[in-house]
């Protein structure tokens, strides 16, 4: 039996096709999100990769910021529950999830069965999100996927505000014009993202294992900064961008099984 999870975020679209609730037979990502061609394209890509059609899906669940605009879905579940589900499946020892996406930062505390015990999210502010890193990458003229490497060469991380993206941007610009090395600025940017995420994680109560997911988890500079701040190791979920879509596909599977019981 096949089930599908579709996660439409603010800046990327993800689809997971799951066989019998355990085998991931497709997990696709397209780096544009809700309102774009991303959702349709990623759906087509996943289906063609799996050699399946929509009719083969026993159930489809959508999640993410754009979840209510996915016509193919039978149901919507919040990304909080889906992240918890997906991450727990991949890392059953997970207690705290730190998820940083395009416009959200969240910390989720899991119960022993992988359910959501508590979660905290950023308020109406882009600081500490993927968008924040996008802005910084543009100002610094360093690609997002090179940021971690720059960070690893830093000697003295610069201070970058974690309360407002616009403030932080002007801080970074003035540091650049003062000749501060990009390596140090980038390490500062990563620290700023980490401090925002860790603030939320502390409210959940920090307990190992701590697992990171979401698009920003691919930036190892952020992962290192979070680990340093929490003084604990941080596990990056395998294929961290698709964990919520995976969770949605697992929910879909469980619902089909539950209904057939």
């Amino acid at each position: 039996m096949f089930t599908m999870g579709i996660d439409i975020g603010s800046s990327s679209s993800k689809v997971v096709i799951l066989e019998d609730g355990v085998n991931i037979i497709a997990g696709e990502v397209i780096q544009i999100g809700t309102g774009s061609t991303g959702p349709k394209r990623v759906l087509d890509e996943a289906l063609s990769k799996a050699g399946l059609t929509l009719q083969d899906m026993a159930k489809i669940i959508a999640t993410g910021y754009g979840r209510s605009s996915v016509e193919e879905a039978h149901k919507q579940i919040s990304e909080i529950s889906c992240q918890a589900k997906g991450v727990f499946f991949l890392v059953p020892s997970a207690k705290i999830i730190i998820d940083i996406g395009g416009q959200d930062v969240k910390a989720i505390r899991l119960d022993s069965k992988g359910g959501v015990k508590q979660f905290f999210m950023n308020d109406k502010c882009a600081a500490g999100t993927g968008r924040f890193l996008d802005v910084m990458s543009r100002v610094l003229e360093v690609n997002l996927d090179e940021m971690a490497e720059y960070d690893s060469r830093a000697t003295e991380p610069a201070t970058v505000s974690s309360t407002c993206t616009v403030f932080a941007e002007s801080e970074v610009i003035s540091q650049l014009s003062n000749g501060v090395a990009k390596e140090n600025i980038i390490a500062g940017v990563h620290q700023s993202v980490a401090s925002k995420a860790c603030g939320l994680a502390y409210r959940c109560g920090v307990e190992e294992d701590i697992v990171m997911c979401g698009g920003v988890a691919k930036d190892l500079g952020v992962v290192r900064a979070i680990s340093k701040e929490l003084k604990k190791p941080v596990i990056v979920a395998p294929n961290p961008q698709i964990t919520a879509a995976l969770g949605a596909a697992i929910f879909a599977f469980e619902e089909v099984i539950g209904a057939n019981k």
């Binding site: 910021y65 209510s68 990304e79 959501v116 999210m121």
Partner: peptide, 19 residues
Amino acid sequence: FAPAQFDTRVQALDEMMKQ
């Protein structure tokens, strides 16, 4: 106020309550 942010939070609350 951002409607989508509200929706996500109350949906997650609903899921936690049902859980």
